[in-house]
Simulated scan of single mutants.
Amino acid sequence: MAEPTPVVGTVRPGGRTARVRADVLRAAGDVLATEGFGRLDLADLARRAGVGKTTVYRRWGTVANLVADLLADMAEQSLPRTETGTLDGDLRANARLVQRTLTDPRQGALFKAVIAAATCDPHTAAALHSFYRVRIEEWVPCVRQAIERGELPADTDAHEVIRAVSAPLYYRVLVSGDPVDEAAADRAAAAAVAAARSGSFPSSATGGLASR
């Protein structure tokens, strides 16, 4: 009897199953980074990963499910937040992590491919949104700690502050084509800090934490 199809992103297999998952996701990432979303094909990925085609179809079923699993895995493997003891230091660390990711030859190209696909594929868009929710939640405690230290207004929307750090960097990558270097990362962090301190991110403006 065929095994039930797992819910993507909820199963954490071990042993051979884990190795198969890792090999297929690595192959998918390679194709995304070098050839783009349009070249993803489950049968081809099975061949590249050296696993059975039936195994790949049974586990993921569709390219969209596989990309969702890839993004879930990337979110889990991403570096944890850095806590420096100051909001300036924490957000600068966040910005520089985003900058390094976007300029990495493999990961930068991979993200561009996924973002491009997300504009016309709702399943890929949902997976991308989930990835960023995980990463934002990872860094939100830095802002909450700054509120507790009295560095920011008490009603600051921590999620909006973290979004404000990376937004200018993605704009450079996807729209303007301007350099995404450490200087740009530091400016983005400094601008987010200044805006947060001035009260530009009140939770009441967007419904605050209850709306996330």
Rank of each mutant, 00 (worst) to 15 (best):
A75V: 01
R172N: 08
Q145T: 14
A158E: 10
R81F: 00
A191G: 01
C120N: 10
V56K: 04
L25A: 06
A205E: 03
D104V: 11
W139M: 06
D104K: 02
P141M: 11
A194T: 11
V161D: 05
E148I: 03
L71I: 01
R21A: 15
K53F: 05
T124M: 02
D73Q: 04
P168L: 03
A118E: 00
A183G: 15
I147A: 12
D23Q: 14
R81D: 04
G9P: 09
A93G: 09
C120H: 14
R81A: 15
A158V: 06
A93E: 08
G89R: 07
G108M: 06
P168C: 02
W139S: 14
R12E: 12
R106P: 04
A167K: 03
L66Q: 14
K53G: 12
K53Y: 10
V63Y: 06
V20C: 09
V98W: 11
F111S: 04
T119P: 00
R21Q: 15
R172T: 12
G199S: 04
T84M: 05
T84R: 02
Y132M: 03
A125N: 12
R197F: 10
V98I: 06
I147Y: 15
G108W: 03
D69E: 15
I162P: 10
F111G: 06
P168I: 00
R58L: 13
E3L: 02
V67H: 11
V8D: 00
E182C: 05
A43E: 15
A22Y: 01
R197P: 10
C120P: 00
T101A: 13
R106T: 14
P6M: 02
D155V: 04
R12G: 11
L40A: 08
A154H: 12
E35W: 09
L209A: 15
D23K: 05
G108D: 09
D121K: 03
A95L: 14
F111K: 05
A146R: 09
Q99H: 04
A164L: 03
A33N: 07
G14F: 12
A184H: 05
S198L: 12
R106Q: 15
D44T: 15
A158N: 08
P153T: 05
R92L: 13
F131D: 01
R48D: 09
V143Q: 04
T10C: 02
E83A: 14
E151M: 02
L32A: 09
A49F: 01
A125S: 10
V143D: 05
G52C: 05
T101D: 06
E138S: 07
E182L: 03
A125H: 08
R96Y: 01
V175M: 11
A205G: 03
T119V: 08
V173N: 08
V51A: 09
V31G: 10
L40E: 06
R26T: 13
G85H: 13
A95E: 11
R16N: 05
D41G: 14
Y132F: 13
P4S: 07
K112D: 03
R58T: 05
Y170C: 00
A109D: 08
V114D: 04
V24R: 00
V67M: 07
T55L: 14
L79W: 11
Y171M: 00
F131Y: 15
A18V: 01
V51C: 08
E151V: 11
L70Q: 02
R16Q: 14
R149W: 12
E138T: 12
A184K: 02
D69I: 06
M74G: 06
A195V: 02
